[in-house]
Amino acid sequence: MTPITWVEGRRIALSRLEKVLYPATGTTKGEVLHYYATVAGALLAHLHNRPVSFLRYPDGPGGQLFFTKNPPPGTPSWVTTTPVPRSEDSGARQVTVPDLSTLMWAANLVVEFHTPQWQADAPARADRMVFDLDPGAPATVVECCLVARWLRERLTADGLHAYAKTSGSKGLHLLVPLEPTPSERVSRYAKGLAQEAEAALPDLVTHRMAKTLRPGKVFVDHSQNAAAKTTAAPYTLRARERPTVSAPVSWEEVESCGRAGDLVFLLGDMEARLSRDGDLLGPLINLNRAGRLP
């Protein structure tokens, strides 16, 4: 029998709570839902007013994975959606996640949460810039941290403030709060900076996606600044072997990273980190350090 729960006055059917989603750690769906309820305050702040895309993995990371921008079949009538610009579909809409009840409904589908760099009421006007630092073996997140430090200094020279989070996979994300800026302009700036990084650190960085160029280097992926692209949201779980989190990290942690395991965080780590540090990506929400591109 499917358990029914009420969240903020809304009826939600929570299914298969004992199902093991992450066999490597024995983590169940019930534990995943508990995790999202625990980090809801921080996660909802980063999802606020943004169209949300889902990477669904209902049978765990070893099962079928599929990415969806459209509201999933069976979406309740009380789930809010927002119009989004798509060249192929003028009437396209995506789910928004403004509250705990919507978050728990979505989490019950077993998803990663992904968002664009712009808000729903200002499509294609980015209020953040992102760099996805992706290591090519044998490089690891240790090398990503070296590149992140270079990028941080370069961004500071342009009056911009960078904040870091793990990707929840192998790499690192850098996020920069911006005054709302056309996504095309942000994309041009980010590409230029990735090219500068490659010129300054040719043995460590590539700005091109070709896999043949990436062994032992860090790919500085600037492409997620395009208006149509999305990035894994802070605090989302990832569909990996273990229940890893895209976790905000301090610059002290980035600077002291000496091995790949130093920046791996699982769902059980996050409550204590939030209690101790608060939301390390808070400035992205408040925009109190939003910068202007030169």
Rank of each mutant, 00 (worst) to 15 (best):
Q224S: 13
T38W: 01
A40H: 06
L213M: 12
S223M: 15
R214T: 07
N288W: 02
P72W: 11
Y57H: 15
R10N: 12
E271A: 15
R273H: 01
R276G: 01
P85V: 14
T115V: 15
G282Q: 09
P202D: 11
P294T: 12
A164Y: 00
I4G: 08
E143C: 03
Q195M: 14
D121R: 13
R125L: 13
L274H: 02
F113C: 11
G30L: 00
S246H: 05
A162M: 05
L281M: 08
S250M: 01
R259F: 01
E153R: 14
D279C: 03
V218Q: 11
A13L: 13
A92E: 05
A139K: 08
Y189D: 06
R238F: 05
A107Y: 00
V111I: 07
P243F: 01
A226M: 11
R56W: 01
H48F: 07
T5L: 10
S87G: 12
D121C: 06
R56A: 15
V245Y: 00
P248F: 00
P215E: 09
A45Q: 13
L267G: 04
G26F: 00
E179W: 07
P243H: 10
P182E: 03
L274F: 07
R56F: 11
L213E: 15
Q117N: 14
M209F: 12
L204H: 02
Y36F: 15
G216E: 06
S101C: 12
T27I: 05
E88H: 15
N108D: 15
L17F: 00
D132C: 06
S183H: 09
L133T: 10
S77M: 10
W78A: 14
A157G: 15
V249W: 00
P135S: 04
R276D: 03
Q64Y: 07
A13T: 14
T166S: 11
E31N: 03
L284C: 05
